[in-house]
Amino acid sequence: MRGDLQLIQDWIAPGSRVLDLGCGDGAFLAHLKATRNIQELGLEIDAENILQCLRAGVNVIEQNMDLGLQNLESGSFDTVVLAHTLQALHRPDLIVEEMLRVGKNCILTFPNFAYWRHRLALLTDGRMPKSPQLPYEWYDTPNLHHCTISDFDELCRRKHIKVLSRTVVDHGHHSSPLIRLSPNFFGINAIYHITR
């Protein structure tokens, strides 16, 4: 399992209702089902991923979340997860609002664009940064709205979103003294647990 998912599973209560936005092949939800007896729902648009979900017995709805979550009732899920997808959405701020409406609490993960190597690439080469987290060229990247940890903190302040917990980690999803010293400079991935 991807490191960020390993870290967030402890925030998911046994027996709860979990919505995973962009659930991929459903492996994370299948794992939560097996270990925490959750009631799951995944949203996905990739045909092969949807087939994998069906094979895994994971409930999956073919739905483009960029068009909103209007079909889901307010407060109908305990936890809504959005892992490594925020930066690829048309309006990240609106999806965060929708997540907070549908779920009692939400978990978001995203790559920190202000990581010092990204800053250095832009500063020295004058080129769009690339890294294992951001492997794309500027012209073919699915990522539309990169943000930094400071940016997201600011969004939470403006929207009066309560941050229950924030974890910032490196490639291997570990923290370090440097990251704790300056998360927005040394951190590669950000993991937020938020609520209203």
Binding site: Q39, L41, N59, V60, I61, N71, L72, S76
Partner: peptide
Amino acid sequence: SREIVDNLLKAHKQVSYLE
């Protein structure tokens, strides 16, 4: 079909949907 799905979700039923 999405109306069916949305109502099943509203009723907290286990549902998958493909178009």
